[in-house]
């Protein structure tokens, strides 16, 4: 009989790991709280840097793991330590004995309403990056005007924000903002797009090319200054305040739509798992890897492994690479090597 490996989280990390573990001859048991696989990526529209379809990625991964045991709308109730391995009790009544568990519980999008000054949920035309992807996916959103003339993107919403309890950079939002700015300009060629940033952290392959392209081809203007306050005018426009730090002057602008680049925080379920399985949390609020250079996918417990954004903010390719790495480490662990 093939050996079970429990994968907690059915996002792209869990799916990719399941695919690799199937290949290595195991039976992955994917436990997902939602009613579908793919996590955040399944709600996204296109992925940088090549504007690949997020749905295609999730669909391809899904096709490769049809032989895995997948439990949707299922939670881990508790994890008991056995003499060798673990007993994982699921909310659907199933309990699984296994030698290895992969935690791929991912991140949660920062609740943008907590930055009250931006008025998410209060003003008519303030949305998040996730809302915009949802709109790109063809789902109507009354907050997106029919033909916006001025659109603003606010970088670092809930990221690099000690007051919000998050010191971390969420890594993907700068690039997401550039991507979404371009996409908005494609939807609304007459619109002027502004990106309000503190630093532009465009570290990945071809990201800088995107930035130059956004400037040159799409006329996106990048304003170095964090938006400090948003108000709503009588005709429903947004009035934003920022400092134009490169001019050294306060700046005001009226916008038709404001997109908040909500950052990544650790999925609160990870803390629950940590309590159940005595895993350590890192100082940034994510799970602590065995080693942040050579052991990202390892934990402080034998047989428990990590992949993806449960240990920190990650891009999709980083997440997929970690998932493959974790699958290999699990294989080695079970083989006793």
């Amino acid at each position: 009989m093939k050996e079970n490996v429990v994968i907690i989280g059915g996002g792209v990390a869990g799916m990719e790991a399941a695919k690799q573990l199937l290949f290595l001859g195991y039976t992955p048991i994917v436990v997902e709280q939602k009613d579908h696989l793919g996590g955040h990526v399944s709600q996204w529209n296109r992925l940088f840097p090549d504007m690949a379809s997020a749905q295609d990625l999730v669909r391809h991964l899904g096709e490769e793991i049809v032989d895995a045991n997948i439990f949707l709308e299922t939670k881990v109730n508790f994890i008991n330590r056995l003499r060798e391995g673990y007993l994982v009790m699921l909310s659907n009544g199933v309990s699984v004995a296994c030698r290895a568990i992969l935690v791929a519980s991912g991140f949660r999008l920062f609740d943008a309403a907590r930055k009250e000054e931006y008025g998410y949920g209060v003003y008519d035309h303030v949305i998040t990056n996730a809302d915009l992807e949802n709109w790109f996916n063809g789902n109507p959103d009354p907050r997106v005007p029919a033909s916006p003339k001025k659109v603003g993107f606010v970088h670092c919403v809930g990221s690099r924000d000690l007051k919000a309890g998050n010191s971390q950079c969420s890594k993907v939002c700068c690039m997401t903002a550039v991507k979404q700015a371009i996409e908005m300009k494609e939807h609304f060629p007459d619109a002027q797009i502004y990106c309000f940033y503190m630093d532009l952290r465009l570290f990945g392959k071809k990201y800088e090319d995107f930035y130059i392209n956004a400037q040159q081809e799409y006329g996106v203007q990048f304003i170095r200054g964090r938006v400090s306050e948003v108000g709503e005018t009588l005709d429903g426009h947004l009035q934003v305040k920022a400092e134009d730090t490169l001019s050294g002057k306060p700046l005001r602008a009226q916008l038709d739509l404001l997109v908040l680049m909500a950052g990544m925080v650790c999925n609160p379920e990870a803390a629950e798992l940590a309590r159940m399985a005595r895993l350590e949390m890192d100082s940034d609020g994510f799970l602590r890897s065995a080693d942040n250079i050579s052991g990202i996918v390892g934990s402080n417990r034998p047989g428990i492994f990590y992949a993806g954004a449960c240990t920190g903010t990650k891009t999709v390719p980083e997440t997929l690479a970690e998932a493959r790495s974790a699958a290999l480490d699990i294989h080695r662990f079970i083989q006793g090597k």
Binding site: K150, I212, Q215, Q216, K249, L251, R252, Q254
Partner: peptide
């Protein structure tokens, strides 16, 4: 001293960009 982006007349900038597109970068 506040700059008002909504009232800024950027026609000169746009004209410049039409002659020197690299100005945008």
């Amino acid at each position: 001293s506040a700059l008002d982006l909504s009232k800024a007349d950027t026609r000169l900038y746009e004209k410049l960009c039409s002659l020197s597109p690299d100005a945008r970068t």
